[in-house]
């Protein structure tokens, strides 16, 4: 299952946001990847996500493979749409 998603928090996938994202992805059994800027990163790895250097406005592709892929993608979209809990 693949879905597109736009990074809308001001600072993009920086250290803190990446931490939040990894804390979400690690709750799921599915293998999860993020495709962005021609790089495919394991979304359960903070080093993987940091290597994407996705800034605000970047569209990423979230790919989940496994039994709970749907829930995984929904949760990921939610945390991205919530701007990782950042105030603006």
């Amino acid at each position: 299952m693949i879905e597109k998603c736009k990074i809308i928090n001001k600072l993009g996938l920086h250290a803190r946001a990446s931490s939040k994202l990894v804390q979400v992805t690690n709750k799921f059994e599915s293998e999860i990847f993020i495709n962005c800027n021609g790089i495919r990163a394991n979304a359960k790895s903070i080093l993987g996500i940091l290597s994407l250097a996705a800034s605000c406005g970047t569209t990423i592709e979230v790919e989940a493979i496994g039994s709970d892929c749907k829930e995984a993608i929904n949760s990921i979209k939610k945390v991205i749409e919530d701007k990782f809990g950042e105030k603006e």
Binding site: S19, V22, Q23, N42, K44, S45, I46, L47, G48
Partner: peptide, 9 residues
């Protein structure tokens, strides 16, 4: 902690 736990690393 997340870096320490990182699978890739």
């Amino acid at each position: 902690i997340l870096i320490l736990e990182d699978e890739i690393l």
